[in-house]
Write a protein that binds this DNA or RNA. Structure first.
Length: 494
RNA sequence: GCUCCCGUAGUUCAAUGGAUAGAAUAGAAUCCUUCUAAGAUUUAGAUGUAGGUUCGAUUCCUACCGGGAGCACCA
């Protein structure tokens, strides 16, 4: 609808130019928006204000000229000019038709062609297999999952991917921790259990075995519990086994992006977007995580993705520059790399901050949270705020609040809808006459429902996933109002 | 010192450069006691400070104040 309005306005302006009412100018982009206040119409454009400078005319005058040229549009109730805005109102007939259309489309309603079937890789969580998933992973997990789902709905081909750092220093550290020797770092009950269970010849061996158990018995079940399904679990170790790390270092050498200094091999990234050079092979011969990250990046590009998304914690925000430099040096398009940086989740207890640390063993796991408040509450809780702002999490408050949490309003609406569907299951309903949908509660509900495609589109563009819980809440509220005002079964005895 | 994020009702959060800054929750008032719940309506209450750009700034720019994160041959 928005697009149609844009075209209509464009046509009107072009006509006015042809008639020499307007001078010729390059048409600026026409913004059609949904006003916050619905008395200002269902759609609205500020084009007249934008043009007032170019045309040296009063916005209201311009708006009226355009309004006249537009004439009447089918499906439109009325078009009004107010204070320079041109406001469009949808007619009841148009709205009623939308319901018929939705019933035809069923769950395909809201599917867009926006993504043009482009391939997107969304990597999220990717927590090291050295301990359980915590609240911070909850934020990245739900956020990544939902954004990936939005992309799917918007018409992209999406791969949800988890990168497992199953080799290297962290694994060695885990080994020490499980053996409880002097170099032990990680603490917690699970370490105690692994200490009893895992035996191995070397520290690395112990670490690797332990990390496999953590991945299979802790992380994967947590992910499942979160309602997330990954398409690919990608192992870092496999990159070494297939010599992809060596290959990528060779390629950088060939492209003249490496040098040796103090017996270490460096990636010359300082002049291509990064603020310093990065080590690829340390003096002791060990390749850094960044080296395998580049191999992984190359691997993703080779799989033919059009866009790569990384969900990063704020503590990794500097990572983007490094990755882009890597892509550039490897002759890939660095613009295909996108990151969503999630600010930190800080844990509070009784108003005081508790530093979360896997190493110190002070953290709240995502399992604990879900057990405590339920999956819906947890998901809704994390998703309802923008990734840009830090998240102060008070478990006591979350528990307390769960009784009057907005999510229950949404669940209640779902329950009521389900109940209606159950009641009508055995009745043969012949739904044809949509013109009966004319009460204001009905009209408002329809207007809310048909916002979905726009929500999907906007979110696919700006990644602000908090829009979705908000939409669900608005929809639930409209539905409750509707249930209050319209007695669905008033003619049948229940 | 440099880089990034954030300062909005009592609280938790919204607001593609637009119209009277929206919700939720807590507060006040009224209704409902249910088509399975925790439902509906009304009401009061906020943009850190100082400039700038703009017809118009919560949004963009600058400075300052405050909170957080990062600046390793760790990830």
């Amino acid at each position: 609808m928005k697009e149609e309005i844009k075209k209509i306005i464009e046509k009107a302006i072009t006509k006015l130019q042809a008639e020499k009412v307007f001078v010729n100018f390059d048409l600026p982009e026409i913004l059609v928006e949904t006003p916050k206040d619905n008395t200002h119409g269902d759609y609205s454009t500020n084009i007249a204000m934008v043009l007032s400078k170019i045309l040296q005319k009063n916005p209201n005058e311009i708006a009226n000229l355009i309004r006249e040229k537009i004439g009447e549009i089918k499906d439109n109730g009325k078009i009004e000019v107010v204070g320079g805005f041109i406001n469009f109102y949808l007619s009841k007939e148009y709205l009623q038709k939308q319901i018929a259309e939705i019933l035809k489309q069923k769950e395909k309603f809201g599917n867009l062609k926006f993504g043009k079937n482009k391939k997107i890789n969304v990597e999220f969580i990717s927590a090291n297999p050295t301990g359980p998933l915590t609240l911070g992973n909850g934020r990245g997990g739900f956020g990544g999952d939902v954004l990936a789902n939005v992309f799917i709905k918007a018409g992209y081909k999406v791969t949800k991917e988890y990168y497992i750092n199953d080799t290297g220093n962290q694994i060695k550290v885990l080994g020490h921790s499980v053996l409880k020797d002097v170099e032990a770092v990680y603490k917690g009950e699970y370490i105690e259990e692994l200490n009893k269970k895992v035996k191995g010849k070397t520290v690395e061996d112990v670490g690797e075995k332990a990390s496999k158990i953590i991945l299979e018995k802790m992380i994967k079940p947590s992910v499942k519990k979160m309602g997330i399904k990954f398409d690919v679990w990608f192992s870092e170790k496999s990159l070494y086994q297939k010599k992809e790390v060596d290959k990528v270092i060779l390629e950088l050498e060939k492209n003249n992006f490496t040098y040796k200094s103090e017996n270490a091999v460096w990636f010359k990234s300082i002049n291509i977007g990064d603020d310093k050079d990065r080590v690829l092979i340390r003096t002791d011969g060990i390749k850094t995580y960044f080296a395998s990250d580049l191999a992984y990046l190359k691997n993703k590009f080779e799989r033919g993705f059009d866009q790569l998304f990384f969900f990063l914690g704020a503590d990794h925000h500097g990572y983007l520059a490094r990755l882009k430099a890597g892509a550039f040096a490897l002759d890939y398009d660095k613009e295909k790399i996108n990151t969503v940086v999630m600010q930190m989740v800080r844990l509070f207890e009784n108003g005081k901050e508790v530093k979360m640390s896997k190493r110190a063993g002070t953290y709240v796991t995502i399992d604990e949270l879900i057990d405590e408040v339920g999956l819906d509450v947890a998901r809704f809780f994390f998703l309802s705020r923008t990734p840009d702002t830090q998240f102060n999490f008070d478990l006591n408050l979350a528990k307390e609040k769960s009784d009057n949490n907005p999510v229950f309003k949404v669940q209640y609406a779902y329950a009521r809808i389900f109940s209606i569907l159950k009641k009508t299951k055995n009745q043969k309903l012949n739904i044809k006459n949509f013109s009966l949908l004319k009460e204001s509660a009905e009209i408002n509900l329809i207007k809310q429902i048909i916002k979905l495609p726009e929500i999907i589109r906007n979110t696919a563009q700006d990644y602000q996933t908090q829009r979705l819980p908000q939409y669900a809440l608005d929809l639930a509220e409209n539905f409750h109002s509707f249930m209050k005002d319209v007695k669905l079964f008033r003619l049948t005895k229940i």
